[in-house]
């Protein structure tokens, strides 16, 4: 077994090329090994000291979030809170303060769990993943990256460097809500993220919805445009969102919930996400995370 600490991205890439697996916060790798999910890899390279990977930068093209940005950093980052609120909502719900301070966005994305909270927000923002290896850098969309539970299309020697999120249009809002049975140390039973951009007349101009824990990967809800574009975000459109989300989900039954309950609830989460995103797009301040503001477990 070998364990090395990378002091530069080049170090890390060289280690990966030699067969090492990267570890940042270790909140998936180490916990998974302890629970017998998968043994620790024989060769590990620690990338947690690569501070250049933990920056969150707003550029003319959009927001660039380093792979090592922690959930704690993202839930408090002013730009994310204001303009990419769904990602802040999701980051604030992850695990516990300890998890949020070690867990990273890059680790989340590359772990490819269909239950990850940050995945659905990234999907509605159309985020691109920057992957780098000793042979170069490429940019991949999330639907192309995630191929199944715990499985990605990235090559073993590719390191996730950053997530790049497109610039947000004016009058846009987003939200992430999840079904949870308790308020900390929880994992999403189901969840939904929504991004809404309003037209000048207050009707919906663009709506994107993505779902958590109802399919082998985080999935986008398709075909919403016909039901929503040019219409107000009201009871009818929200009902259409709920229906579409439930219909397009393919949940399993497990210890946390049955498939039928998940299917029902993901519709509820989707309508709440769109409602909150629409209200935020209209300028309303709803505190992070929406789960608490809505009191999921409370009113709709």
């Amino acid at each position: 077994m070998s364990f090395t600490i990378a002091t530069s991205i080049e170090d890390a890439l060289a280690a990966l090329a030699a067969g090492a697996r990267p570890v940042a916060g270790g909140s998936d790798l180490v916990v998974g090994a302890r629970h017998g999910k998968a043994p620790l890899p024989d060769s590990i390279v620690a990338i947690d000291r690569l501070s250049e990977l933990s920056t969150i930068t707003l550029t003319d093209d959009g927001l660039r979030i380093g792979a090592l940005a922690t959930h704690a950093a993202m839930m408090l980052d002013a730009t994310i809170v204001a303009s990419y609120s769904a990602l802040a909502d999701a980051s604030a719900l992850v695990g516990s303060p300890a998890t949020r301070n070690v867990g990273t966005l890059g680790g989340n994305v590359m772990n490819a769990s269909p239950a990850m909270d940050t995945g659905a927000p990234l999907l509605v923002f159309g985020a691109m993943v920057e992957l780098r290896s000793t042979s170069g850098t490429r940019s991949v969309s999330l639907p192309d990256l995630w191929v199944g539970p715990g499985s990605t299309s990235a090559a073993a020697d590719e390191l996730c460097i950053a997530l790049v999120l497109a610039k947000r249009p004016a009058r846009s809002g987003s939200a992430y809500v999840r079904l949870e049975y308790r308020r900390a140390m929880e994992i999403a039973v189901v969840g939904a993220a929504a991004s809404v951009t309003l037209n000048d007349d207050g009707t919906a101009g663009h709506v994107a919805v993505a779902l958590t824990a109802v399919a082998p990967t985080i999935v986008a809800v398709g075909g919403l445009d016909a039901a929503l574009i040019g219409r107000p975000v009201d009871e009818d459109t929200l009902a259409a969102v709920a229906r579409a989300a439930a219909e397009q989900s393919a949940p399993i039954s497990d210890l946390r919930a049955s498939d039928s309950y998940r299917r029902h609830c993901v519709g509820v989460m989707a309508r709440r996400a769109v409602e909150a995103a629409g209200r935020r797009a209209g300028g309303e301040a709803i505190a992070i995370p929406v789960n608490r503001a809505y009191g999921i477990g409370a009113s709709r």
Partner: peptide, 11 residues
């Protein structure tokens, strides 16, 4: 208690 009637979640 408070009941979320859409989901059955109780607080």
């Amino acid at each position: 208690v408070r009941l979320d009637r859409d989901t059955g979640v109780v607080r």
